[in-house]
Amino acid sequence: MSAQDQRSQDSRPLIHARNLSKQYGTTKALDGVGFDIEAGRIVGLIGPNGAGKTTALKAILGLTDFQGELSVLGFDPRKQRTELMEQVCFIADVAVLPRWIRVREAIEFVAGVHPRFSREKCQAFLAHTKIAPGMRVRELSKGMIVQLHLALVMAIDARLLVLDEPTLGLDILYRKSFYESLLADYFDENKTIIVTTHQVEEVEHILTDLMFVRDGKIVLAASMDEVGDRYAEVMVNPDRADAARALKPLNERQIFGKSIFLFDGIERSRLAALGELHKPSVADLFVATMKGTYA
């Protein structure tokens, strides 16, 4: 069955998870998690350290054992890893390309094992960088290694791209250009991207969906549009602060003598009466949702 057939026959979501659980010793990395991810989305999987993000990604990639039900592109990642990896790409963090390999060897290898790899695309992307075919990975800077990895991955016509902290430790120029290339040269309606990162501010404008993870559970799963509808931030003068508190805000912080309240699911008209309305940033929403995580 070709990928095309599979796509048309399979009306189920791209990723379908129910009751995912995984334990390391006594800590529950995943605690009965369930979610669906549709094709053509860019999903941000966001959570504090140790919340279970990486474990969830590893389960999707078939890199760890788990309990529960999980299908990725119709495959069981535990049993059909090799088939799955023909349509899934994965960038962990910057340090995973083997340090001994030369750029041209890496290209030859991926071209040889990956049926959906395009050498031309890869070389076209590398042409915009300072990376030369004879260089070894160990001679490249962190930023160049990520460029090389991205070039290899973007040249693969995969249906799902998984990014686990892809820009960790890079300077802002590399981080910006990483996400820009991803959006401009890679993403389209047939592709799906899942990304975890701590640099929420840098990905929030590219995400279509948001998933907050805390203590092995999903505490928020919504599209960015839904988030915009549901949550609102209001800047309130001190004299109306008590009225705002009565509406049970998720969070309150002070700035320039005013209070900023974050509300979930309160009517716009009522909030507008209190003060100036804003769309909350993902980072603010995250901080409010994760309050007390490390306490």
Partner: peptide, 17 residues
């Protein structure tokens, strides 16, 4: 060695059994 330096994650991201 590839597990120690984590490059196993790169090899495992390719369709090789």
């Amino acid at each position: 060695d590839d597990r120690r330096d984590r490059s196993v994650l790169f090899w495992k991201s390719l369709p090789i059994s």
